[in-house]
Amino acid sequence: MRSPSFRLLGLAVAPLIFLSACGSDDGGEGTDDASQSTGADDAAATSIAPNGTAEDVTLTEADVEGTTVPALELGKTPLSVGETSVQELEPGEGEGATAEQDVELKYLAVNGTTGEEILSTFTTDETVSMSLANPNLLPGFLNTLEGTKPGQTMIIAMSPEDGFGAQGNPQLGIGPADTVVFYVEVVGATTPLTQAEGEEVEPKEGLPTVEADGTSPATITIPEGEEPPTELVVQPLIKGEGAEIQSGQSVRMQYTGVQWSDGSQFDTSLQEGREAFETVIGAGQVIPGWDEGLVGQTVGSRVLLVIPPEMAYGELQEEDPAATAAPQQHELAGETLVFVVDILAAN
Score class of each variant (00 low, 15 high):
Arg2Pro: 12
Arg2Val: 12
Ser3Gly: 04
Gly10Lys: 07
Gly10Ile: 01
Ala12Pro: 02
Leu16Tyr: 08
Ser20Ala: 15
Ser24Lys: 13
Asp25Val: 14
Asp26Tyr: 11
Asp26Arg: 09
Gly30Asp: 07
Thr31Trp: 06
Gln36Asp: 12
Ser37Asn: 13
Ser37Tyr: 12
Ala49Cys: 10
Ala49Thr: 15
Pro50Trp: 06
Pro50Glu: 11
Asn51Val: 04
Asn51Gly: 04
Thr53Arg: 02
Asp56Cys: 05
Leu59Asp: 09
Val64Glu: 10
Thr68Cys: 00
Val81Gln: 03
Gly82Gln: 07
Ser85Tyr: 04
Leu89Lys: 00
Pro91Cys: 01
Glu93Tyr: 11
Glu95Ile: 08
Gly96His: 04
Ala97Tyr: 00
Ala97Val: 10
Ala99Met: 11
Gln101Pro: 01
Glu104Ser: 14
Tyr107Pro: 03
Gly112Gln: 02
Thr113Tyr: 04
Thr114Phe: 05
Glu117Trp: 00
Ser120Tyr: 00
Val128Met: 11
Met130Val: 14
Asn134Met: 01
Leu138Arg: 15
Pro160Gly: 02
Pro160Trp: 05
Asp162Ser: 08
Gly163His: 03
Gly165Ala: 07
Gln167Pro: 02
Gln167Gly: 10
Asn169Met: 09
Gln171Glu: 15
Gly175Thr: 07
Asp178Trp: 01
Val187Trp: 03
Pro192Asp: 07
Pro192His: 11
Glu199Asp: 14
Ile220Gln: 02
Ile222Pro: 02
Pro223Asn: 03
Glu224Ala: 15
Gly225Trp: 08
Glu227Cys: 07
Glu231Phe: 06
Leu232Ile: 05
Ile238His: 04
Lys239Val: 07
Ala243Glu: 15
Ser247Lys: 12
Gln254Lys: 15
Gly257Cys: 09
Gln259Thr: 13
Trp260Gly: 02
Asp267Asn: 14
Ser269Asn: 08
Arg274Asp: 11
Arg274Glu: 12
Ala276Trp: 02
Phe277Thr: 02
Gln285Arg: 13
Gln285Pro: 01
Glu292Tyr: 14
Leu294Cys: 05
Val295Ala: 09
Thr298Pro: 06
Pro308Leu: 03
Pro308Trp: 00
Ala312Cys: 02
Gly314Asn: 07
Glu318Gln: 14
Ala322Trp: 11
Ala322Thr: 15
Gln329Ser: 09
Val338Arg: 00
Phe339Cys: 05
Leu344His: 04
Ala345Trp: 10
Ala346Gly: 09
